Simulated assay, not measured.
Amino acid sequence: MVKFIMDSFKIYTQEDIKAHVKLRKGETKLGEKIQILNGSLSAQHLKISKARVVILGIPEDIGVRANYGVGGAKTAWQAFLPAFLNLQQNIFLNGEDILLLGHFEIGEPEEDDIESLRQKTAAIDELVSPVIETIVKAGKIPVIIGGGHNNAYPIISGTSWALSQKISVINIDAHTDLRDVGEGRHSGNGFSNAFTHKLLAGYTGFGIHQNYISESLINYSQNNPVKLIYFDDILSNDQSPVNGFKDIVEGLKGPCGLEIDLDSITGILASAATPSGFELNEVRKMILAAANKFCYLHLCEGALKLENGRTDLSIGKTLSYLVSDFIKALHLHNAVLL
């Protein structure tokens, strides 16, 4: 029997936020205006807030390690917080449109063998799903900072349950994460688990690398509602990634989540960091072009520091750009500059 430390969800207070905000005379930082939850975590209390977007963190890398990856994804959330909260409050980005909910506190299993890590990943699923369901039931759009890509499954679960229907996802990623569900839960089979439990209407993998897809995964994609856009084809056709992404989004029907694995972007520290992939500004353009088409945003696999010692001091700012782009593109405000 694998023993787990008690897991929980920490709801932020104003004091939690103030600890990260650097005040400056003549300026207003986003953290000075951002909303918090007043009351317990329930759809009723969330509905009271005028904020449309709810941000939360899942700082864990257990699912990554359960997939034989390098730990470190748990460090991204704490890097994101000060970077995001110290953005400028202005006509382009208004803290009153955003509720900063908090983060999951997830303990390590007492043993770190693969089987224990996979059992713990399954336990994380049960922790995350109801929180996402509550947010979506309140009519809000969750923005989730991971954490491993294993959390795609409980995010899809919670969203699907809240909407009482299957949803679709677009996954900007170098890998499909459609591995065999029989292996046990890990970061490589979040979407195949969602298919198994009849939560996904369709899956589009955008930017998948041909070097990292097995024949079995190719066969799986041909026998399920899966569409794969290979990064290699984008390169060989000299196709604009942004235009290709827009074409896919225009054909969306029904609710759809946007998944972005940071290992699809060059120069970003992740367990499976890549020297060849999308540029950060290309992904920003994709978000700015289509954010209002999505019912959630999940940014995963980025890291401030990996277990092998590699660091990326810019990860907090990188995540902040992607999140602020998503919020701006929802057209919450139509700023007019005179």
Rank of each mutant, 00 (worst) to 15 (best):
Phe80Met: 12
Leu81Gly: 00
His209Leu: 14
Val136Trp: 09
Ala66Gln: 01
Leu178Val: 06
Asp312Ala: 11
Leu200Lys: 11
Leu313Ile: 01
Ser314Phe: 01
His149Ser: 03
Val242Glu: 10
Leu217Ala: 06
Gly244His: 15
Ile213Pro: 00
Leu332Lys: 00
Leu330Gly: 12
Tyr220Phe: 14
Phe92Trp: 13
Leu288Phe: 14
Gly26Phe: 08
Ile36Met: 08
Ile229Trp: 14
Glu133Ser: 06
Leu46Thr: 09
Asn189Leu: 04
Tyr12Leu: 02
Ala335Glu: 10
Gly316Met: 03
Glu126Pro: 09
Arg118Phe: 08
Thr75Tyr: 01
Leu37Cys: 12
Gln88Cys: 08
Ile132Phe: 04
Val128Ser: 03
Leu87Cys: 14
Asn67Val: 12
Val169Thr: 13
Asp325Tyr: 05
Gln88Val: 07
Ser8Gly: 09
Lys22Trp: 01
Glu115Thr: 04
Tyr12Arg: 01
Asp177Val: 02
Leu299His: 01
Asn308Ala: 03
Ile208Cys: 06
Phe84Gly: 12
Ser221Met: 08
Ile287Cys: 07
Lys305Asp: 06
Gly107Val: 07
Ile11Asp: 14
Phe245Lys: 00
Ile248Leu: 12
Lys253His: 12
Lys22Ala: 09
Gly251Trp: 04
Met6Tyr: 08
Lys293Trp: 02
Ser157Thr: 14
Val53Tyr: 04
Val70Pro: 07
Gly148Trp: 00
Ile229Phe: 15
Ala43Cys: 10
Val323Ser: 06
Tyr68Asp: 15
Leu313Ala: 15
Ala123Cys: 13
Thr121Lys: 05
Arg52Glu: 09
Leu217Arg: 06
Lys10Ser: 12
Ala329Pro: 02
Ile144His: 02
Cys256Lys: 05
Ser276Ala: 14
Asp233Phe: 02
Arg284Cys: 15
Ser264Leu: 01
Ile11Tyr: 10
Leu262Ala: 03
Lys50Glu: 13
Asn219Val: 14
Ile218Asn: 14
Ile91Pro: 11
Asp180Trp: 04
Gly254Asn: 15
Ile135Asn: 05
Tyr230Gln: 00
Glu111Tyr: 10
Asn237Trp: 15
Glu282Asp: 13
Asn219Ser: 13
Phe326Gln: 03
His331Phe: 08
Leu199Thr: 03
Leu319Tyr: 06
Gly267Gln: 05
Leu313Trp: 02
Gly39Asn: 10
Leu262Thr: 00
His331Trp: 14
Leu41Arg: 00
Ile17Val: 15
Thr176Phe: 06
Thr318Trp: 01
His186Val: 02
Pro142Ile: 08
Thr159Met: 06
Phe84Ile: 08
Ile155Thr: 11
Cys295Ala: 04
Leu56Ile: 12
Gly302Thr: 07
Val226Leu: 05
Leu258Arg: 02
Ala303His: 07
Leu252Trp: 06
Asp16Leu: 07
Tyr203Gly: 00
Thr311Pro: 07
Asp263Tyr: 04
Ala123Lys: 12
Met6Glu: 14
Gln78Tyr: 14
Val21Ile: 11
Leu117Thr: 05
Phe278Met: 10
